[in-house]
């Protein structure tokens, strides 16, 4: 198992993943980023972390529409694992859906820290990082 990652990107859109990684790198070199293209892989990763007592990422950017297991499915599985998770994990729903129903559904999950609509720009990322790491994330 690798060392703890700070940020987890879960999205089936590989272009989005590339662009997010790129953007985050522009902002900071200190935060380690990991990516998964569907919820199932992400759940497997987190299960493995809890099994091997590796700290979970601080932030998860979660897409809704994904194959094999979507964002909602991931959240349901995450809930099951919650008792085994020791550190604080901030999950942000990141989606291009502007549907009210999705936003409402998201509000029902207390595990969620926020709901962000694509594209995610640098300003938004800075805000989120500052909230979580205060001043400790910039070089």
């Amino acid at each position: 198992m690798k060392a703890k990652s700070n940020i987890l990107l879960v999205d089936d859109d590989t272009l989005y993943l590339y662009l997010m990684e790129h953007t985050i790198k522009q902002l900071t070199e200190t935060l380690k980023v990991d990516t998964f293209t569907d919820g199932e892989q992400a759940v497997e990763f987190i299960t493995k972390c809890t099994e091997e007592n590796v700290e979970l990422p601080d932030v998860i950017f979660l897409d809704i529409n994904m194959p094999f297991l979507d964002g909602w499915g991931f959240l349901a599985e995450f809930k099951k694992l919650k008792t085994k998770i020791e550190n604080n994990v901030n999950i942000y729903m990141v989606t291009s859906s502007m549907r009210d129903s999705d936003r409402k559904r998201a509000a029902e999950f207390e595990e969620l820290s926020g709901y962000v609509i694509k594209p995610v720009n640098k300003v938004q990322l800075k805000e989120i990082f500052t909230k979580i790491y205060h001043e400790n994330w910039q070089e």
């Binding site: 859109d13 953007t23 529409n65 291009s96 859906s97 549907r99 694509k118 594209p119």
Partner: peptide, 17 residues
């Protein structure tokens, strides 16, 4: 939804690029 979500995703990506 199909239009707003599935089409929006690549378009936003494109704008970012």
């Amino acid at each position: 939804y199909l239009i707003s979500h599935n089409l929006r995703a690549p378009v936003t990506s494109m704008s970012v690029i």
